[in-house]
Amino acid sequence: MLDDRARMEAAKKEKVEQILAEFQLQEEDLKKVMRRMQKEMDRGLRLETHEEASVKMLPTYVRSTPEGSEVGDFLSLDLGGTNFRVMLVKVGEGEEGQWSVKTKHQMYSIPEDAMTGTAEMLFDYISECISDFLDKHQMKHKKLPLGFTFSFPVRHEDIDKGILLNWTKGFKASGAEGNNVVGLLRDAIKRRGDFEMDVVAMVNDTVATMISCYYEDHQCEVGMIVGTGCNACYMEEMQNVELVEGDEGRMCVNTEWGAFGDSGELDEFLLEYDRLVDESSANPGQQLYEKLIGGKYMGELVRLVLLRLVDENLLFHGEASEQLRTRGAFETRFVSQVESDTGDRKQIYNILSTLGLRPSTTDCDIVRRACESVSTRAAHMCSAGLAGVINRMRESRSEDVMRITVGVDGSVYKLHPSFKERFHASVRRLTPSCEITFIESEEGSGRGAALVSAVACKKACMLGQ
């Protein structure tokens, strides 16, 4: 009897593995994704193909990295998701002549009506938060230079001027797309009239992360975010950046690689679950690469896999709870928690219980395998993109072996128990001629924006502006 049951459990697990095998990517698959990513990057950089390229390769006008001589107080704003952060950054000489960066910050959550109302409502709310922060720190009387981390696709015309191309991540505030974001912020500050600010720089969160990590390690020339969304930036040779005049030196390019796949480059790798996630998203047909990796989508992918296993009578005796059938019910943090389970399955059992399920031991094991399959594919897909960037940098610099540091931020990278190990191992397999160091950014977005502002202020002083 026991043997029969054991055989049935083994057969069930084997069927589960057959279904989950769809998520496995072979090294040849990853090399294919990497080569296609490089081709799209090239198209994004070139003037004649930029418009139709899915990977936009947006110039950021960040050319210099901090040298350690900029000092002063800077205000930093960070808008990239449902939370908005205001930070005071003091850049100065530390002990023994070292450079020191001290920060104080406060988080504000953005109400739904500000995210989806008008641009005026959104930026009025942001300036209200700045006003509140300055009151708390008794700094209303000071006109501070301000660095703005704005983590949406922007076409820069200068370091302090950028046109919002399109909202992502659930934002829909009308009247912002096609307009200068810094102008919208300046107008809102003017409307309030109770404080003055000098907006000197606007950067993407990947750029802010790279600059913040450069402060720790001067070989950091790539910034990457794996959180709600997924994106990367890197220092490109100016001669390859056709959208900006000049051939000397390097400029940081914001790849906006989340949109890779929007022209069909990933079609052969998309599964039924991916198509369902895409169809029910706020932007169907867009940001397809990001939807395979980002935390906004990972939990939902797992939920759809679990429903398939229920329908195949391989999980929960073929019956799903009402909660499990509800879109968004299986949160991405559950994926991390399930994979963090120590082996007694308590954590998995508790999560499934909150979803109205009474799982068996085998159910718990199957749910864990589903989570591992989805998150491992995410790590491997992400590795193909980064390997594409790094191999490109090595080739354009004609280096036999390139040493490089990548600064990384984002909740999936930082909080998932195995993502970074799987990701690092896969990147290294795909970049055999590179020695890569990964560092995690601390308060990256805010500190990085302030350091970019410090560079901009120093330049302005040198130019006598």
Results as ranks from 00 to 15, higher is better:
D3H: 13
R5L: 12
E9F: 14
E9K: 14
A11H: 08
K13Q: 07
E14I: 08
E17W: 13
E17C: 11
I19Y: 13
I19D: 13
F23H: 01
F23D: 14
Q26H: 13
E27K: 03
L30M: 09
R36M: 05
R36N: 04
Q38P: 04
Q38S: 11
E40V: 04
E40A: 13
L45V: 03
R46L: 07
L47D: 04
L47E: 06
T49S: 12
E51Y: 09
E51N: 06
E51L: 09
E51C: 12
E52M: 15
V55A: 03
T60P: 03
T60V: 06
T60H: 01
Y61F: 11
T65Q: 15
V71W: 15
L79A: 04
G81S: 02
F84G: 04
M87H: 15
V89R: 05
K90E: 15
V91S: 07
E93W: 06
E95I: 08
E96Q: 11
G97P: 15
G97V: 12
Q98R: 13
T103N: 08
K104L: 13
H105Y: 10
Y108L: 00
P111E: 12
A114D: 10
M115D: 03
L122Y: 06
D124W: 01
Y125L: 04
I126L: 06
E128A: 08
E128K: 11
I130Y: 00
S131F: 06
S131T: 03
D132S: 07
L134H: 03
K136V: 07
K136A: 06
M139L: 07
K140W: 04
K143W: 09
L146P: 02
F148N: 00
P153W: 00
H156L: 04
D160E: 03
G162V: 02
G162T: 01
G162S: 01
I163S: 02
I163T: 02
W167G: 01
T168P: 04
T168L: 01
K169T: 02
G170H: 03
A173W: 05
S174H: 05
E177I: 15
G178Y: 00
N179W: 09
N180A: 00
L184C: 11
L185I: 05
A188H: 00
I189V: 07
R191Y: 00
R192N: 04
R192D: 05
F195R: 04
F195Y: 03
D198I: 10
M202F: 01
V203P: 02
D205A: 00
T206D: 00
M210N: 04
C213D: 00
C213H: 05
Y214F: 15
D217E: 13
H218I: 14
Q219T: 10
Q219K: 13
E221V: 14
G223Q: 00
I225N: 00
G227S: 02
G229R: 02
G229V: 00
C230P: 09
A232I: 01
Y234E: 06
M235W: 14
M238T: 15
M238W: 03
M238F: 06
Q239H: 14
Q239M: 07
E242I: 04
L243Q: 13
L243K: 00
V244S: 02
V244I: 08
G246N: 04
G246L: 06
G246H: 02
G246M: 01
D247E: 12
M251F: 05
C252A: 14
C252L: 11
E256Q: 01
G264D: 07
E265M: 02
E265I: 09
E268F: 10
Y273Q: 06
Y273V: 13
D274W: 01
D274Y: 00
D274R: 00
R275H: 09
R275N: 09
L276M: 07
V277K: 09
D278R: 06
D278C: 04
S281L: 03
A282E: 15
A282C: 08
N283A: 12
P284K: 13
Q286N: 13
K291M: 08
L292Y: 08
G295Q: 03
Y297T: 06
M298Y: 05
L301Q: 15
V302N: 03
R303V: 05
L304M: 08
L307T: 15
L309D: 01
E312Q: 15
E312K: 14
L315K: 01
F316D: 08
G318M: 15
A320D: 07
E322I: 09
R327G: 14
A329N: 08
A329T: 08
F330Q: 05
V335S: 12
S336H: 06
Q337F: 05
Q337V: 15
E339K: 04
E339V: 10
D341M: 14
T342N: 13
D344F: 06
K346W: 09
K346V: 13
I348V: 08
I348G: 08
Y349E: 11
N350M: 05
I351C: 10
L352M: 07
L357S: 06
L357I: 14
T362C: 11
C364W: 05
R369G: 08
A370Q: 05
A370P: 04
A370L: 08
R377F: 01
A378F: 03
A379L: 03
S383F: 03
G385M: 04
G385S: 01
G385W: 05
V389H: 03
I390G: 04
M393S: 06
R394L: 08
E395A: 09
E395W: 13
S396P: 12
R397C: 10
R397T: 05
V401T: 12
M402L: 09
V406Y: 02
V408S: 08
V408L: 09
V408Q: 05
D409F: 03
G410N: 01
V412F: 10
V412M: 15
Y413L: 02
Y413D: 02
H416N: 08
P417V: 14
P417N: 14
S418I: 06
F419K: 05
F419Q: 03
K420H: 06
E421Y: 08
R422M: 11
F423N: 01
F423C: 10
S426R: 09
S426F: 07
R428W: 10
P432S: 10
C434K: 08
I436C: 13
E440W: 13
E442L: 12
R447K: 10
A449M: 01
L451T: 04
L451R: 02
L451V: 03
V452S: 09
V455S: 13
V455D: 13
K458Y: 15
K459P: 15
M462Y: 09
G464R: 12
Q465V: 14
Q465E: 06
